[in-house]
Design a protein around this nucleic acid. Structure first.
Lengths: 121, 121, 121, 121
DNA sequence: GTGGTCTAGACCACT
DNA sequence: GTGGTCTAGACCACG
């Protein structure tokens, strides 16, 4: 199994998400060259067009930029990366609250549980 | 696809998980009858055998019990349900910490972010 | 029919029982490789899925463990095997007492008969 | 399921065994009338010829006798019944020892285990 | 109608 | 080659 895509989200979005996390977590740093579409296409076992679409999204978000014949690079706009990181983190937290709610954990209890867990770790 | 299964986990486990959450969140209450294997088979668009396997897992966990020709029911052992709920919550929290770590959020910041988010909501 | 199944018990349970006895009696030792699902399927003249179900039971009982692409093996937890052996022996003894009772042999006479028989052997 | 026959023994022998136990345990007493072949045929869901064969075996063993137009009856020879009971018991005990041996319980331990179990009951 | 068992046969991932 | 998953479809017992 090369990657593990979910059925309920377009693949290009899943790839985008994966690369986004690599950028905001610093796996790919400012001005790092992003692997070529061909390479990514191989890695994700996806059609180059799908990769292209994912990268376009990232470019629209201002996380990467293109140098014509040179390739694509992570933006040097660290502020932008940080902003994206915050948004992502925020989304995950919302998701987390929603899941907990679905299970029936009261919102005020969530923080308590987390603090407790943090001590354990 | 009515339900949306992930590729990287057996369907029967995903169904199991879905029903488990319905039980620990109280959507299905103690002694509630669980829809028949055939109904669930229709609902999840899965083979009856797959449903059976999912329900067997839940029975092994002590969350449901079977009345042979009558149907399957949520256990009346509320303690067991609670135990399962706690374990599930714990798993989700661990997952949450791991994801955050992957993105590059320090553990001690996580709680702060959550508290902040909680105020917003 | 090579094996001889009883009508009143699911085949998978009978297979489970047969293999269980091989384990607790030491025919299969700790860490021994169990014949492959396909081999057993041939030997017991049963469907591979039926074998699988039998082996899953044994795995649930902690008597065997699986190495994904390698095969299934007898647990190295000798304590677990011993525990299972004791339970099995206990069951057989209870059964024995029940049968004797059904025939009309008083419980206190059973032991006497056994002791006597033992001398003969 | 009316009775539950094993595949590895002729049905007539299994029926014979069942009736034999009823006789030696006293469910059917000396001189009791045995149900008619037709009745037994219905009860065991077996062909009347099969029943006949089973009853013939019992007659050969001296456990039942036939009154021409009247039916079949349990022998009044209590000694014979007792002898048969002893043989049956003996067989079961041998079987029991064999099973234990198969599991790997030493013969001398069997009696100890039984005595212990008897105290429990 | 309910759940349970079983088979046949296919496909997958891993090595 | 290994085990694991899944489907389709049949049959059974119980009520």
């Amino acid at each position: 199994m090369s990657f593990n895509f979910t059925n309920d989200t377009p693949i290009y979005l899943q790839i985008m998400e994966d690369i986004k996390i690599k950028i905001i977590s610093g796996v790919y740093n400012s001005n790092d060259k992003i692997p070529s579409v061909r390479e990514l296409s191989f890695k994700y076992e996806a059609n180059p067009n799908t990769i292209q679409k994912a990268l376009n999204e990232l470019e629209d978000m201002g996380l990467i930029y293109t140098e014509r014949t040179n390739g694509k690079f992570v933006t040097d706009n660290n502020e932008q990366i940080l902003k994206c990181k915050n948004e992502t983190v925020n989304d995950i937290i919302c998701d987390f609250y929603l899941t907990m709610e679905k299970i029936g954990v009261k919102r005020k209890d969530v923080v308590a549980l987390l603090v407790e867990k943090e001590k354990e770790l």
